[in-house]
Amino acid sequence: MSVAISDAARDALADWLSGMKSLRGASEATIGAYRRDLVDYLSFMTEHLGGPQGIAALGRVTTSDMRAWMARERGAGLGARSLARKLSAVKTFYRWLAEREGLEVTPVLSARAPRYQRSLPRPLAEDAARAMIETVGSSDTRPWVAARDAAVVTLLYGCGLRISEALSLTVDDLPLGDSLRIRGKGGKERIVPLIAPARQAVEAYLEIMPHPVTSGAPLFRAIRGGALSARTVQKSMERARMGLGLPATATPHAMRHSFATHLLSAGGDLRSIQDLLGHASLSTTQVYTGVDTARLMEVYEASHPRAARR
């Protein structure tokens, strides 16, 4: 939508986004998504209400106006999950406006997102995860490429890394020790243990990797020496899963799911797994591992300071 929004609304949006980046550490991708969502919302309200909406006018948005916006989004083909995400961004912006400008924003905050079925992750069985690593490690006729792919997949399963985190490692992270410092979503850092099989897989790859190991260079290299892409790893796992007869859900992210689920089933503490995965919310880890509410409450009762004092 190309409708112009008011200068006041645009300035407020810019200030809010700046705060999200500096105070909450939101990533550039997140900031970009918030900007698109809010510009689209503000543009709709400009057109719907018949003119550019200043700060005071934004506080006069009604429940009916919110319903009209949500109906337009659904009518344009936006799915329930995407609309819920978009509404969450709008509500966060309005909470900030309420604190800064003293606006009454109850109609916006009371808007209900459409219900949707949250898809649960599908981890691999332990033997399937091991078979995936072994198959990836023998699926390319070039030994260094096979060793590279095996090393990446081993890091995903052995350390619970996101594919982007594994591929962001550089030569400067060498030599590998007993842990890795990972910069995850929003630039947040965490320390994850590096198990011996993962370290050995990376070292085996480096021994035969033909490209120069220079400071600043990516740890995992493409055929011509550039940074390895996530798509290349996905293709390698696609070939492996077809050979193993595994479902299409056997993706790089499924290896991270498998790490968390297998660790939990072996007796791992949910809070510790949350830290290892870099989840900001325990509820995210709950969904990630498929843990039920009763188990989540056990963790809460055992770890929450106020609960522990009762």
Rank of each mutant, 00 (worst) to 15 (best):
V3D: 15
A4V: 13
D7C: 10
A9N: 02
A9K: 01
R10V: 07
A14V: 11
S18M: 14
M20Q: 10
K21F: 14
K21Q: 15
S22N: 10
L23H: 12
A26Y: 15
E28R: 09
E28F: 08
T30C: 10
I31K: 05
I31N: 03
R35A: 10
R36F: 14
D37V: 05
L38I: 11
L38G: 03
T46A: 14
G51W: 01
Q53K: 08
Q53P: 13
G54R: 03
I55H: 03
A56V: 12
A57I: 08
R60L: 14
T62L: 04
R67L: 14
R67P: 09
M70S: 07
A71G: 11
R72C: 09
E73Y: 09
A76Q: 12
L78A: 13
L78F: 13
G79V: 06
K86R: 14
K86Y: 07
K86L: 12
L87T: 03
A89E: 03
R95G: 04
E101H: 11
E101Q: 11
G102T: 10
V108N: 01
V108H: 00
R112E: 15
P114D: 10
R115P: 00
Y116S: 11
R118M: 13
L120R: 02
P121V: 05
P121Y: 02
A125F: 10
E126W: 08
E126H: 09
A128I: 10
R130E: 13
R130P: 00
A131S: 10
E134I: 07
T135M: 12
G137L: 02
S139A: 15
R142P: 02
R142G: 06
V145K: 04
A150N: 01
A151L: 07
A151G: 11
L161D: 00
L161Y: 01
I163Y: 04
E165R: 04
L167Y: 02
S168Q: 06
S168K: 03
T170E: 14
T170L: 09
L174A: 06
P175M: 07
G177M: 09
I182G: 00
I182F: 04
G184V: 02
E189S: 10
I191A: 07
V192G: 01
V192A: 03
L194D: 09
A198I: 08
R199P: 00
V202L: 06
E207W: 09
E207G: 02
H211R: 06
H211F: 08
P212I: 04
P212A: 06
P212L: 05
V213I: 14
V213G: 11
S215C: 09
G216F: 05
G216M: 06
A222N: 09
A227L: 07
A227S: 15
S229L: 04
A230F: 06
V233Q: 00
Q234N: 11
Q234Y: 15
E238S: 07
A240L: 02
R241S: 01
R241V: 02
M242D: 14
G245A: 12
P252R: 01
H253R: 04
M255P: 05
S258T: 11
L263N: 05
L263W: 01
L264S: 02
A266L: 12
D269Y: 01
L270W: 02
S272L: 14
S281P: 09
T284Y: 10
Q286F: 08
V287T: 08
T289M: 02
V291Q: 00
E298L: 08
V299N: 06
V299K: 02
A302I: 08
S303T: 15
S303E: 13
R306K: 12
R310I: 15
R310D: 15
